[in-house]
Each structure stands twice: as C-alpha cells, then as structure tokens.
Design a protein around this nucleic acid. Structure first.
Length: 585
DNA sequence: GCCGTTTTCGGCCCGACTGTTTTCAGTCG
C-alpha cells in the first residue's frame, strides 16, 4: 500500500490512542493527535516532501521528533514506537475507545482486570456480570456498555451528508422554536461549519426556561434513545442513527455559546490559548477578565475581546484562520450571490430528467445568466456513433437562446477521459462547443502515477476546459482516487484550464484543502451543480459552502465571471490561444 | 511532544453530565 498523508496520520492516531490507554502524559497524547489531524488534511503529500528534502519542521505541530517518525513511516509504513506499543498492548484494543462511554482509563482497567481486547470479548464479560465487579464500574455502566456494543456491532458509525442532516434538523428546530420563551434555535457544530459530512448535529437554543426546552427535545417523536438529559445540555439518538446534542443558554451568552458549540475543537483551543495569553478566559458563557464578563452576546464581541476579527464558520478548523484573523488578512469568501452561471449540468438527453428549456428557465429563475449544457454520450449511442444527438442539441440550444436576451445556454459536453487520457468525443464535435468538461468515470483504482498522467494527458488535449470532479470520490461510497493533485493543478495553471468543484452533496469534489491549493496555484475553480434536474441547480449552494471551506474568494471562482468576462477564458481552452504546442511534438 | 511580542523550560482549554462515590473520576464535546 502506498504511503501518503492518510497512512501517516493513522499511525500517529493509533500511537496517541495506545499511549493514552497506557496512561502516558496527556500532552504527549495530544501532540500525536494534533499531528494526526494536521497531517490528515495537509495540502501537500508528506512522503513527496520528504523525497524532495523539504523541511517538515515547518508543518504546525510537527517538531524534530515527529518529523523523524514521519520519515520512518514514509519509508516503512510504521515506526518503532508503534511496534513497541503494539507489543505491549493488542493493536485491536484501540477500537474499544470508539465505544461511547469508554475512555482510556476504563479500557485500561478492562484490559488489566479482564484481559479484554475486543468488542465481542467485552460484551461477553459484561453479559456475565464481570464488568460491574470492577472498581469504578457498576450495573448501569455495564448495561450501557452492552447497549453501546450492540449498537456498534449492528451499525457502523455513520456520517451524514449535509442535505440528509438538514432533513433531520429542520422539523426538530421547528419543535424547539415552538417552546414558550425560546428566542433563537440554531444549528452549530460541523453542520454550521458546512463540513462535507456530519457525524452528529449540534443545536443551540436561547430560552428563559431551559428545562422546558430539554423536555421538548428528549420528548421529540423521532428520538430513539436519550443519552443525556441535563438542565443546560442534553443528547439523544434519533431513529436514523444521527446523534443530536442540545445546549440551552441565556440570550446574553448566545455569541460565546455559538463560538464554543460551532467549534471546531481545535479552533476553540486556539482561541482559548490566545485569551489565556492576554490574561482572559473564554468559556461558553463569555469572555472573562477575572470575574468580570467583557463579551459574549455576539460572536463578533467574543472575537473582538481577544483582538481578532470574526472568523466565518467555514474556516474554523485551525488551519491558519486564527493568525489570519489577528493579522486582518481573512479572505473575503465567495458567496452564492456572486455566481453568474453554472458550468456543469445534464438534460434528459443523457443523465438528466428535465429538458433543455426547463433547465434554462430554472437557471434563469435562480438568477443565473448562463448555464453550460454538458451532457454525456447517451447510453447506447456508442462513443463511435455519429454524435447526431449532440448536433441536434446544439441546434436546439440555438433555438432556446433565441428566446432570451438576458440568459445564455453554453454549448458543452461532459467528455469521458479514457485510461490513455484521450476523450470519448471526437475533435470535430468538440470544435463546435464553447467548453469541454472532462471527467474520469472508470478506472478509479489506477496507481497514482498512472492516474495522474492520464488526467494530465487529457488536460493537454487541444479542447479541454474543466476537469470535472477531479478525485472521483463519492462520500461514504467511494474514496478519492490516488492522484497527485499538485501536479494536476500545476498543469492546469500552465495550460490555462480549470478544475471543477462538483457541488453535488455526495461528491463535493474538489475537497476543501485542494480548493485552497488550487487558489494558491492560481487555478480558478469552476463550481458546477452537475445537476440532473432543474431542482438540482440548487446544489450550487453546497458547492459555495465547500469553496468557502477552501478559503476561496470571489476572484478564485471561475463562474463569478460575467458571461462577457468568461467567454475569452473559455475560448483560450478551446484551441483559441492556449495551444502553442503541436500534438506529438 | 510541541512551542515561545513575558518563555529553550514549563507550561499545555474549559465546563456539563453520569455513575459511583461520600466528594469525585471518567467521559464527552
């Protein structure tokens, strides 16, 4: 298995878990976990950096020791410390930490006293009543463990796509807002940060009577199990397996609670360290100097109290936003209203359900000035067919365009990229189009170098505008393909073509960290709805969320251009100036 | 184990809820 950042991060995460179970210095444990998180979403491939002789010490949370371990892991896939720890403890034991209610101390106690090192074994010991005998455990804990393990064995912990989470959230928020005395009821957590998937939902409520809100919450019809039910904090599992955490605060603490509850955890820790250095304390009730509360009603007041500009929720991941906020260099993030058009959509000619006219009307109704029609070769038409379908569609587009004076359908195609890097649409057809969206649709498991070369060759084609859904990932279904993204971005920059951020909520492809790298590489990102129906043009909003997580400004996004600004950029990719290099030369 | 507009040593975020205790440890977010 090739070693990349994810593998390095996994080694550090396991070391952190093992050290914690062993009772090591908690700050050492945190150092490994911080490093795992940093590396996991670091924008450059660490083994490649090592091969290039780059200085790993520049990576935040990586010091001399962890840098040397990274070199070891890059070379061997493991490191001596990991092996030593696995010798002392069964490697599988870290899975026990994932059981709700089990932390390092209890896992160690279970291992020491009962030699438990697997879920099945723990369940058997709990069933036979041995767990309740241990100090610190009791009958209730034992019963909860059995329940939690049965849950886990039945159903893998699941992450939810944003629209699915929203679907569960909306009626619950309505119920809470209907409780007497409730002011605000808003989502927080990773949902508010617009992470591509959420593991649970966090809801923040302001109310005079906190207990009434908590009661309404745990009494919600969709609640399958109540996990905690306190005065200000409650937690429940919904029937679909989604956990929801509720926090109720006074209105004058709303801002502080929203910062705290929006996270991320790493962002909060960074804020608190800054506060601490200035002799202040931040908690979910406000910012305090001694006993004096100096801020808390709004998020802006909390950030201002510690000398920062308010950070947009999408950036709160401890990826440099705190420094940028202090320096006043936070990016002015792109917004949905900045988009003038959409550069990836299907009609009923291929993958879509709605016709050309319906798509045009829907795009126009959404305030867009242009929509690129980018159908694929219809099934059964065969890549070697005559492409009459496309010729007919181009004529049809002309007819539709003649009916508008404030809106344009652009002529495009979603060309498949074959394994040799060629496109499945002939040049003669491509030459009649405004843009070509190229997409890999098979062979996702090619080795990294082969996959990368395939895409680079496709981008080198004399008609190639946008690399669609570059990593091919399908959230929860298919991992990103092995791809040297920096090379792809460098090529796009050199050729003057573009990469897509596919806005389908199950794709959101480019991933956020690569969006940021695209901007650094000077490659505009095309946010494409990839809509298969008129309704799905609304996907654009998910794409904008993801773009914001990737620090993209209006300038970094291709389709914030007006049609007049866009046309010459597209033309350059269609043999109109980009090509100075003859094929095979 | 990392890190430094007080520091290369001595710090390292903060509070709620539960269960097992008899004043608090463990876990979680």
């Amino acid at each position: 298995m090739p070693i990349h950042n994810a593998e390095c991060a996994a080694v550090f995460a396991e070391i952190g878990d093992m050290l914690e179970i062993q009772g090591a210095n908690p700050f050492r444990v945190r150092a490994y976990r911080n490093a795992a998180r940093t590396i996991g979403d670091y924008g450059r491939d660490i083994p490649t950096m090592i091969a290039n002789g780059d200085d790993l010490g520049k990576i935040p949370s990586i010091g001399a020791d962890l840098a040397s371990k990274l070199r070891e892991i890059a070379a061997t896939g493991t490191c001596e410390l990991q092996q030593t720890l696995r010798h002392a403890l069964p490697g599988a034991i870290v899975a026990l930490l994932d059981v709700p209610g089990l932390g390092a101390k209890r896992v160690k106690a279970l291992h020491d006293a009962l030699h438990v090192d697997s879920l099945e074994q723990l369940r058997a010991e709990a069933k036979s009543g041995h767990v309740r005998e241990l100090p610190g455990f009791g009958a209730k804990t034992e019963a909860h463990l059995i329940e939690a393990i049965d849950d886990r064995l039945q159903r893998e912990p699941q992450r939810f796509l944003l629209p699915d989470a929203a679907h569960a959230l909306t009626p619950l928020l309505e119920r809470l807002r209907a409780v007497a005395g409730v002011g605000k009821a808003v989502p927080a957590g990773s949902f508010r940060r617009r992470r591509e998937t959420v593991g649970d939902l966090d809801i923040l409520v302001t109310a005079r009577d906190a207990a009434a809100v908590a009661d309404a919450f745990v009494g919600y019809g969709d609640v399958a199990r109540v996990l905690a039910h306190g005065k200000t904090r409650s937690s429940a599992m919904l029937a679909n397996g989604l956990q929801v955490d509720l926090r109720v605060v006074d209105a004058d603490a709303f801002g502080a609670a929203l910062v705290y509850f929006t996270g991320s955890k790493a962002h909060n820790i960074a804020l608190r360290r800054i506060a601490q250095a200035g002799g202040l304390k931040i908690n979910e009730y406000g910012v305090f100097r001694g006993d004096e509360r100096i801020a808390g009603a709004t998020e802006a007041s909390v950030y201002a109290a510690i000398g920062l500009h308010e950070v947009p929720p999408e950036l709160r991941e401890d990826r440099g936003e705190v420094d940028a906020s202090r320096a006043g260099t936070l990016p002015a993030l792109v917004e949905r209203k900045h988009l003038h058009g959409d550069l990836h959509a299907h009609t009923d000619v291929s993958a879509g359900r709605d016709g050309l006219r319906a798509m045009a009307a829907a795009a126009r109704a959404r305030g867009l000035a242009y929509l690129a029609v980018t159908d694929r070769v219809p099934p059964g038409d065969g890549a070697r067919g005559g492409f009459e379908w496309l010729a007919r569609q181009l004529d049809d587009i002309d007819r539709v365009n003649a009916t508008f004076d404030d809106f344009v359908l652009l002529k495009g195609v979603e060309a498949g990229i074959r394994e040799d890097g060629s496109l499945d649409v002939p040049d003669a057809m491509l030459g009649r189009l405004d843009l070509v969206v190229g997409a890999v649709r098979d062979g996702f498991d090619l080795p990294r170098g082969v996959q990368t070369d395939r895409m680079l060759r496709a981008m080198d084609h004399s008609h190639f505008t946008i690399l669609a859904h570059p990593t091919g990932r399908m959230l929860g279904e298919r991992d990103a393909c092995e791809l040297d993204v920096p090379r792809v971005l460098a090529q796009a920059a050199a050729r003057g073509c573009f990469v897509e951020l596919d806005a389908q909520p199950r794709r959101l492809d480019l991933p956020d960290v690569w969006c940021r790298e695209a901007a650094k590489a000077g490659v505009p990102v095309a946010i494409g709805s990839d809509a298969c129906s008129a309704d799905e043009l609304d996907n654009l909003a998910f794409g904008v969320d993801q773009a914001r997580r990737g620090w993209l400004t209006r300038h970094d996004v291709l389709n914030t251009r007006t049609l007049a600004q866009l046309r010459p950029l597209l033309a350059r990719t269609m043999g109109g100036g980009k090509r100075s290099r003859s094929k095979g030369a």
